[in-house]
Simulated scan of single mutants.
Amino acid sequence: MGIIKVNNIKLYANHGCLEEEAKIGSEYRIDVEVKASLRKSSKTDDLVDTVDYVHLNYIVKEEMAIRSKLLEEVAQRILNRFFRELRMIKKATVSVAKLNPPIGGNVEEVAIILTKKR
């Protein structure tokens, strides 16, 4: 078993419960960790034998572009697509963080972390 991480994916999106968030949007940081057998790819040196991190990034970008009120819903959609489209994944964790959230204080970020297993 091995781990593939895609860290610090930075995107601008329009998630949140407030109407202002839908209009002006916010900056987000997404971190992804997937577990899969990397034994074959470590020997074959062939992309078809591993989890393509370009595909992981593509899914994150597509799902982040779909507006949601809650970050939990966004993270769950990302996980669901990982498991639907990338059959090699055994376990995945996704962290979706809203940077400088509008919560009436000096807060760097709020983050939702979800994990799913096959």
Results as ranks from 00 to 15, higher is better:
Phe82Ile: 03
Val107Gly: 11
Ile103Met: 03
Ile112Asp: 04
Arg87Ala: 15
Val96Tyr: 03
Phe83His: 02
Leu70Gly: 05
Asn80Pro: 05
Glu73His: 11
Glu108Gly: 13
Leu99Pro: 05
Gly104Leu: 02
Leu86Met: 14
Gly104Asn: 01
Glu109Val: 11
Ile103Cys: 04
Ile113Asn: 14
Val96Gly: 01
Met88Gly: 10
Phe83Ala: 01
Ala75Pro: 03
Thr115Gly: 12
Val110Ala: 13
Ile113Lys: 14
Arg87Leu: 14
Ala97Gly: 11
Leu70His: 07
Leu114Lys: 10
Leu114Ser: 03
Ala75Met: 03
Arg77Pro: 08
Ser95Lys: 06
Pro101Ile: 01
Ile112Pro: 01
Ala75Ser: 06
Ala92Trp: 02
Val110Asn: 07
Val110Ser: 10
Ile78Met: 09
Ile112Asn: 08
Asn80Arg: 12
Ser68Lys: 09
Arg77Asp: 12
Val110His: 09
Leu71Gly: 00
Leu71Gln: 00
Val107Pro: 05
Phe83Gln: 01
Asn80Gln: 14
Lys91Gln: 11
Val96Ile: 05
Ile112Gln: 04
Asn106Asp: 15
Phe82Pro: 02
Asn80Ser: 09
Val74Asp: 03
Glu72Trp: 07
Pro102Ser: 08
Arg87Asp: 15
Arg81Ala: 00
Glu108Ser: 09
Gln76Tyr: 11
Ala75Phe: 01
Gln76Gly: 04
Asn100Asp: 11
Glu73Phe: 12
Ser68Asn: 08
Leu71His: 00
Leu71Cys: 02
Leu71Asn: 01
Leu79His: 03
Lys69His: 08
Leu70Met: 14
Lys90Asn: 11
Ala75Leu: 04
Lys98Gly: 00
Val96His: 01
Glu85His: 09
Thr115His: 08
Ala97Asp: 13
Val96Arg: 00
Thr93Gln: 12
